[in-house]
């Protein structure tokens, strides 16, 4: 029996789709059976980032409306046998899918896969409600910007009200170390302090991410870019390993917090 994790954010464009593709790929690299679901109906992306667009025959709307079985709609990854994608529809509107529909699909997929990753659309409306319906856990993505953290906080508040959902975990994406240092971006401690949920990982802002998405080949495949290491670390933490934050990942630790509390600037 697998586990369903929804990747969500509130604010748009912060890296949900990129994270879903890369964490999914990393879990597959670690030998897990993984299925990705794109619930961003009308604005499907995940297939493009994965480089699988040309293989799509049916989509999630076809499954919900029972035009095909779940298995028929799944697209197999070109690199891994154990990584599959259930693509979103490009034409239908959001109302074509219901929370119950997604719940049913997720429940069925959980029989066959270790992890189901659900890529959530931006916002807190119908699309969001569909995406979280079948999930056991949630990962919230934020960038180190105030507006993004604010929306993440809003989403966490909503997720905490969902029955049967564990407390969400946090990924901070697109960190630019030099901007954090100069005080033009929030630092990791500040974000974790405000949101007060467990940190699952942090990902640097890395051109390699954009390049590899462009070529339909998730960055997580590359052996040693900053971003690919981060994504693989996140996957290992999902499997329950305790992997320390890597060094870009600059954790100032307890001492910094204590100092701050007494108002001493380091």
């Amino acid at each position: 029996m697998g586990e369903a994790i929804v990747i969500t954010s509130g604010k748009g464009g912060v890296g949900k789709t990129t994270t879903t593709a890369n964490v999914g790929t990393s879990l597959a690299l670690l030998g897990k059976k993984v299925c990705l679901i794109d619930t961003d109906i009308g604005l499907r992306n995940l297939d493009v980032v994965m480089g699988l667009e040309n293989r799509i025959v049916y989509d999630v709307v076809d499954v919900v409306q029972e035009r095909c079985r779940v298995k028929q709609a799944l697209v197999r990854d070109k690199r891994f046998d154990c990584l599959h994608l259930l693509p979103a529809s490009q034409t239908s509107d959001k109302s074509a899918v219901t929370p119950e529909g997604i719940q049913r699909i997720v429940a069925e997929l959980k029989q066959d896969y270790d992890y189901i990753l659900i890529d959530c659309p931006a916002g807190i409306e119908q699309g969001y409600k569909n995406a979280i319906a079948g999930a056991d856990k949630a990962v919230v993505i934020t960038t180190p910007e105030k507006s993004s953290v604010r929306d993440a906080d809003r989403i966490i508040g909503l997720l905490e009200k969902e029955e049967g959902m564990e407390s969400p975990h946090l990924i901070i994406n697109r960190i630019r170390t030099h901007m954090v240092k100069s005080g033009d971006m929030l630092d990791i401690n500040d974000i974790v302090e405000v949101l007060a949920i467990d940190l699952l990982g942090i990902v640097a802002d890395d051109d390699e991410v954009i390049k590899s998405s462009h070529h339909g080949e998730p960055v997580a495949f590359q052996p040693n870019t900053k971003a690919s290491i981060s994504y693989r670390n996140i996957a290992r933490r999902i499997l329950g390993e305790s992997v320390p934050l890597m060094s870009l990942e600059e954790d100032k630790g307890m001492m910094a917090k204590v100092k701050k509390f007494f108002g001493i600037k380091s």
């Binding site: 105030k146 604010r150 906080d153 809003r154 007060a196």
Partner: peptide
């Protein structure tokens, strides 16, 4: 509890909140 963005907490009498009020709460 934490009063998060978009959340409102109201009580009659005095309020003792053990937790944060986040921006937007």
């Amino acid at each position: 509890r934490i009063v998060r963005a978009g959340q409102k907490l109201h009580v009659k009498g005095d309020l003792l909140l053990i937790g944060d009020v986040n921006p937007g709460g």
